[in-house]
Computed example of a mutant assay.
Amino acid sequence: MNSCAPVSVVMSAFQEGDSVAQTVASVQGAAVRPREIVLVDDGSTDGSCDRDWPPGVRVLHQDHVGIAAARNLGARSARQPVVVFLDAHCAVDDQWLAPLVAVLDREPDALVGPAVRDHADPRFVGCGAEIVDPLLAYRWRPVTGTGGEVGLVPGGCLAVVRDRFLAQGGFAPFTGHGLEDVELALRWWRLGRPLLGAAKSVVLHRFRSLAPYPADHQAWLQNVLRTALLHLPSPYLRASVMACSRLPSFPTAIATVLAEPWVPEHSRLLDIEARTVTAYVDRWAPRAFGRTDG
């Protein structure tokens, strides 16, 4: 008989087709399963979330805003002390939940991620990531030992104690897809909280060269700029903005972001900062900002 962990798995879905049902089946079929799955339909029109779901699956609906808003809605609705955010195009190992919960039992303030294998090529596996360029893109880190500290927990699978996550405002109010995990990692670092990998937890992820929906480059660029403005000191901020300025949607993106009320959050983060972004860059993003003089 499958055992249950005190976990709410939160899955957001937008135009996922049959992948979302396959991911739900994988999670529920594991030897250790969550007590509930909260599936947030982010305005899909393909019917992917309109199914007769098995017990233990709750479906919430919202207009299409993006993955950050969908995950926040799922976390607020979750009924278990641990939330695991999982992409809707994954398959999980039988024992995937236990190592994540064990790390959070020891380090309840942490963000924790599993070892992630490429579904198409299981030889590729990473655990945690590091930022590699001024646009805040990241690269997976090779698995070493049982995990340990990482620079970033990619959002494809991310575990956190629900109350601590919500107390810090959840994911930032980003639109579309992208950067919500980078912003959260920088915020968690600045709070002095651990970012950890749990390599004994294994998730297979379907990395896609083409998403099943049109790419929204402006929303992604706005999320890059929001993250940079909130967290990066000069000269890293300058390097990031200059990299963004080379992209066609930059004028509209920067105007949109600068018009938002980002200054109070920037000031709040400075007031509560326990570790600096400069220390983060030195450790986890030295190649991203190796040249900051223009």
Rank of each mutant, 00 (worst) to 15 (best):
D93I: 11
R76W: 05
V83S: 13
H64E: 03
S77I: 04
R76D: 07
V59E: 09
H64W: 05
A68E: 02
Q80H: 08
W53M: 13
W96Q: 09
A78W: 03
D63L: 14
L60E: 05
V92Y: 00
F85V: 01
R71H: 14
P99W: 07
V57P: 11
L60V: 13
L60M: 13
W53C: 13
R79Q: 10
C90Y: 00
F85W: 02
H64F: 03
D87V: 00
R71E: 12
S77G: 02
A75I: 11
D87A: 02
L97I: 03
P55H: 11
G66N: 05
G66F: 01
A70T: 12
N72D: 08
H64C: 10
A75M: 06
H61L: 05
V82N: 06
A69C: 12
L60Y: 07
P81M: 08
A69S: 14
Q62N: 11
W53V: 15
Q80R: 00
N72W: 09
L86T: 12
V59T: 10
D94P: 06
A75C: 08
H89F: 04
C90F: 00
Q80N: 04
A69I: 12
S77T: 13
V82W: 09
P54M: 14
C90H: 01
L73K: 14
R58L: 12
G66S: 08
P81Y: 04
L86K: 14
H61A: 06
Q95G: 13
R71I: 13
A88W: 06
V83H: 12
A69K: 15
V57Y: 00
W53P: 15
H89W: 03
R76I: 03
L86C: 14
G66D: 02
H89Y: 06
A78I: 02
G56P: 11
A98G: 08
N72T: 04
A75K: 01
V84G: 10
V92C: 00
A98W: 05
D93A: 12
L60N: 09
V92H: 00
R76K: 02
L97V: 02
D87Q: 01
N72G: 08
